[in-house]
Design a protein around this nucleic acid. Structure first.
Lengths: 341, 341
DNA sequence: TTTCGCAACCAAACCGTTTTCAATTTTAGA
DNA sequence: TCTAAAATTGAAAACGGTTTGGTTGCGAAA
């Protein structure tokens, strides 16, 4: 059913019908109601592609997806979906070929030019992220999930990574730990930097010098969690506590600790960051995992919300949200054990 | 840069330019080369929305996303992305409000009518899945990831769930196990049914009567893995082996077994299904996990490929792929222990 | 030479909306 | 009652491409 045909059935012009459905004021309430009603009855729905061509709006939010299968991704998307379900906006997932730099910029450039999306969400920004500069230059609305230090105005939503890790680390220090290892995310992303800062500040404010031998960076995998933890624990002067970047990393740390005949929460303390997954909960781990917690799903929902505001004209300058992170103490943290004499 | 302008710069008509770029034969090679070259140089790219309006193609594949944050999802998408990155097709994620039945059908109907996608991928089909009937009726190309018994022709790609679980169960029986528990996925989906069949057939072909007390269904979460395993093991006549539906479930089972002072691989055997995640590998678990394995990512890639074929006209009737599943034996399986006398 | 076929190109119609500008009808004010 | 202003409605021009149905020019066949 096309507009023309539909309008004819109603005895109205396409103009009026279009306006009635789009909520323009210059159409009488009576007419509007009738049009809306008949549209449902006859099943008329405007052709999206025609609307998009004419209006220039794409009706979609772009999310560029890296190749690393990040488990956060699904949660974030589910959160976005939750918000967008009532909206007439969908999510366009754009595959990224290689993390090769040039390619990536090219991808964003094309995405913008192609006019397939009204806005873009940028993930895992770097301190000086060229994607941000590019999108700003091209005038494409975008929201950064995370933050960047770049000298370009941008809307962002981030969690307080630094504060979270600082508190986590401080807490471990308060428990008497002095050798605290840090298993961080991949180097380069701002959040990893912030977490590193939080870690260092906590140590330094207690007069402890960070030991580079106790700091590691890498993907959030069980495997790396294990490897790093294991190699740290096998050092001559092993750590008594760990701060870990993700639930998967935590799993690896648990394994490593166990594999050495030690016990998490007694011999080694651990605090990890928990993005709140329905399928793996910190509280259920044995011993239950002390965690800095912030819902990835909620972030997705809010990001979708903010992007919608961005699209409808709100200034990026007004959109800066820093979410506090909970620190939830459970059994994986405990006072440092006196070295056996 | 619009087509008209671009054509003028080249001293050609829009017609010829359009044809040159779209690879039509009635344009000389010389011209085609020149057009292609200049397009790059001047940065001309056809407006997607205009192309879509005119051709009726949407340039996107639809994936409906449930609210349950499934960790498989990201892997599957990453796989799709891998295939689509070279193509001019993207992935449209459509949020699903409630798993409420009517709503879901309504969603699919609208999705089709809106012409935002050229094809749809249907996940976790049920034996008699109305979505399939609907899409078939509406003439929308679609690929089912999984299978359905419904009496409607449909393209599908599935893994041999039944065979996988049958072999896994048989292997456990060969190891001497007789009380084998089954922690399956949510009731309703075909794959859960197939796995159940595989489980029952294996038992029955060895003359073992399935015990409903040892069969559970539910989401693939660590929590449910733990609960089910624990409650099974606390029964008067506990199982000596488990077949579990996912890696997360397996984590829960490990926990449950440990919590009772038992040991996986010695006191209790376990085989779980592994979708192959970069962040959690069966081989790294302690003891390493015996698993039926099939790459979710590879499935995503192939599904994308098949959908593209579907879009370009291949008959759904020809597209039926049943992937074999590997059975990889590691340390979590062992001979049944004689009951302590 | 004329005719035909073919390669290469082009003008204009069309895809299904939105929106500008203009026309018509109502309403309100005098 | 008349008129100006306000409230509705419509006709037609975009939006930026693709594609149909030609036209043109040239060499080969008749």
């Amino acid at each position: 059913m096309k507009l023309k045909e539909f309008a004819k059935q109603l005895g109205l012009s396409p103009t009026t019908v279009s306006r009635a459905l789009s909520g323009y004021p210059e159409v009488s309430e009576v007419t509007r109601a009738r049009v809306a009603e008949e549209a449902v009855r006859l099943g008329y729905r405007p052709n999206v592609n025609a609307v998009r061509l004419k209006t220039g709006r794409a009706g979609a939010i772009g999310v560029v997806m890296g190749r690393a299968g990040e488990f956060h991704f699904a949660e974030f998307m589910a959160g976005m979906a939750e918000r967008l379900v009532t909206e007439d906006t969908d999510i366009l997932v754009i595959p990224m070929a290689d993390p090769d730099h040039n390619d990536e910029m090219q991808l964003y450039r094309r995405l913008v030019e192609s006019q397939r999306v009204d806005a873009i969400i940028v993930h895992s920004p770097r301190p000086n992220d060229e994607r941000i500069a590019l999108l700003h230059k091209l005038g494409m609305p975008f929201l950064v999930h995370g933050r960047s230090d770049i000298d370009v105005p941008h809307a962002w939503l981030d969690i307080d990574n630094e504060g979270a890790v600082r508190r986590a680390t401080s807490h471990l220090i308060d428990l008497g730990h002095r050798r605290i290892a840090m298993i961080n995310g991949r180097q380069g992303a701002t959040y990893a930097l912030h977490r590193d800062n939080g870690y260092r500040r906590a140590l330094q404010s207690h007069g402890i010098e960070p030991d580079p031998q106790l700091i590691a960076n890498g993907n959030f995998t069980d495997e790396l969690g294990f490897r790093f933890a294991r190699s740290f624990l096998e050092q001559p002067n092993p750590p008594t506590a760990f701060v870990a970047g993700s639930m998967m990393t935590a799993l690896g740390v648990y394994r490593a600790v166990r594999s050495l005949g030690l016990q998490v929460g007694r011999d080694v303390s651990l605090i990890a960051h928990d993005d709140v997954f329905p399928y793996l909960t910190a509280d259920n781990m044995v011993p239950s995992l002390s965690a800095t917690r912030s819902s990835m799903r909620a972030a997705g929902t809010r990001c979708a919300d903010l992007v919608l505001q961005l699209i409808s004209g709100r200034s990026p300058l007004e959109i800066h949200e820093l979410w506090p992170v909970e620190l939830i103490l459970r059994e994986s943290t405990g006072p440092v054990r006196q070295p056996q004499i």
